[in-house]
Design a protein around this nucleic acid. Sequence first.
DNA 1: ACCGCTGTTCACCGGTCTTTCACGGGCCTT
DNA 2: AAGGCCCGTGAAAGACCGGTGAACAGCGGT
Lengths: 121, 121
Amino acid sequence: MEAAERAYDDVLYVGALEIRPSDGLVLAGGRALNLSVREFGLLVALARSGDGIVRREDLYARVWGGPLRGGDRSIDVYIHKLRVKLEEALPDWRFIHTHVGFGYRFSPEPSHTFHIPATGR
Amino acid sequence: MEAAERAYDDVLYVGALEIRPSDGLVLAGGRALNLSVREFGLLVALARSGDGIVRREDLYARVWGGPLRGGDRSIDVYIHKLRVKLEEALPDWRFIHTHVGFGYRFSPEPSHTFHIPATGR
DNA sequence: ACCGCTGTTCACCGGTCTTTCACGGGCCTT
DNA sequence: AAGGCCCGTGAAAGACCGGTGAACAGCGGT
């Protein structure tokens, strides 16, 4: 059922990240990250969504509580802040992936994308 | 409702594709595809049609909503975009087959792109 | 009071998405 | 052979969406 309030075996491991929601703690490669409340909530919400895409409305509802009003860009701003902190902690990995028109997906992927040139025609 | 474990009754498996309509997510060989809203809608509509032929009017009605006006080439353009993305994800398979005058058929078929030495025939 | 941190909002802009146009090739009909 | 229809494909224009820096106010600690 709801995995929300179990304080003991609640730890999430995503790539080199260890997230302890009940402790308000995130370890990146063993080192603690310094996140604000919003940043932390966002990270937990994303990590708990597994490899699925989370819609911005759902993210907002879960972290801020309440419906996302049109024109509210708080999510964008905090996605950005989170990305910056994750990147400076683990420069070789990207965690937050944008799916335009759908939402965000959380999954550890190596930052260098070798783009296969698709046989230029 | 837990997003991570949800909607397994809604997932479509077609060849190496895993399509989750309710998540807005497509996995090709385990890797997430980056599709636009239209591309995704088209793929879902095709995949839901099984291996039958879907008429362009029906495709348009299902994805765009409303009747297909004469001269509208949006479907062609997006079929093409989808093909490109599917091909670069799974180069050895072809999914979208044209039946001229009838419509499109969605079915995973191996592409015989491995270069055949001219011995045959 | 001052300072640093946090959360929100604004403004700008660059990239993505969608539609439309244009051209060309294949096939069928005449 | 010529023309017409259908579809593939590249490109362009405009709308739309999200990234990003900065300003501002609130709050707690010192």
